[in-house]
Amino acid sequence: MRFLKFGLQLLCGIFFLTFLTAASIAADDPDPYAKKRAAMINVIEQDVRAGYVALEEGELDDEVTKALGRVPRHKFIPQHLRQAAYQNRPLPIGHGQTISQPYIVAIMTHLLHVDKNDRVLEIGTGSGYQVAVLAELVKKVYSIEIIEPLGKQAENLLQRLGYENIELAIGDGYYGWEEHAPFDAIIVTAAASHIPPPLIKQLKPGGRMLIPVGSRFMVQELLLVQKSASGAVTTRQMLPVAFVPLTGKH
């Protein structure tokens, strides 16, 4: 009788373990979005090759496309919009905020010219997607979000996704993150009436700062702030698109 009981317990145990393993394989392995993600990257690459003039190189940095290929964009998007996660369009994420169009994320990340040893600061965490993409490329990313629930949501998600090189804070991004300054690159996705001077100070000589200008759903222009080795600051204003206002001779 005891044997029978033990046998039954063993059987149950084995059955339970098998079930768990099978369940975990089912949850982890088949990434139903992998194909869509690859297609999205393909579309972005084609669009860039079709003539986006501001990228001197003519095409996206390979590392950037690889990073986009690794980040599960659908997890940064509310459940009811997931079917649109890999379409090349911005999506609302609640709190009056959006996740940028993947094409814009790709170009912005490329324009930052980051290196694997870089430390990057982001103002405006939002969904956390841009931080995740950067985290795939650099040593450490710091990000500050002003809207508390949004910041907490992003923090939970990024932890779940296992990112260890991201540090998040909730609060006012105007003064940057003095403790970890200077940064090799800064990206400011939060709207401000001007470029906060403290952020320019926290940019390393030779560093790049990128600011998308426009509304929540439409980026009007990309503003690239560059600090030369001597500390002189200049900006480059670019359209996110290949469009020349003048045609013919001028």
Binding site: V43, Y103, P240, V241, F243
Partner: peptide
């Protein structure tokens, strides 16, 4: 037409 063709490439704000 030019702007609409740039729709997916961030051209809509134009």
């Amino acid at each position: 037409p030019e702007i609409l063709s740039l729709r997916d490439k961030g051209g809509l704000p134009l």
